[in-house]
């Protein structure tokens, strides 16, 4: 069953949090994972749930040879 918007945002956040340090997730990885558990979820809802997490600063886009969605952190290179 499709998740309501707020629940979807939290569902995705937990997914990104659980993957932290183990696997870097792309937007499409998140979409596929959500659709696997909730096949009737609207793809646009997933897109905008990710946008909400990014706009709120709870998640950030990172670039390590490709673009990923991760939990914000201070990277080693930015030491000051």
């Amino acid at each position: 069953m499709a998740l309501p918007k707020e629940e979807l945002v939290e569902y995705i956040y937990k997914m990104v949090e659980a993957a932290q340090g183990k696997k870097q997730l792309k937007a499409k990885d998140i979409e596929k994972a959500v659709l696997k558990e909730h096949p009737d979820q609207n793809k646009n809802d997933i897109k905008f749930a990710i946008k909400e997490l990014i706009d709120g600063g709870r998640c950030v886009y990172t670039y390590f040879g490709g673009s990923f969605i991760e939990i914000p952190r201070v990277e080693g290179a930015a030491k000051h």
């Binding site: 946008k51 600063g57 950030v60 990172t62 290179a77």
Partner: peptide, 13 residues
């Protein structure tokens, strides 16, 4: 070295 997490809020590009 390039890449990482810097950006402006809301944008990934």
């Amino acid at each position: 070295k390039h890449g990482g997490i810097v950006g402006v809020l809301g944008y990934g590009s």
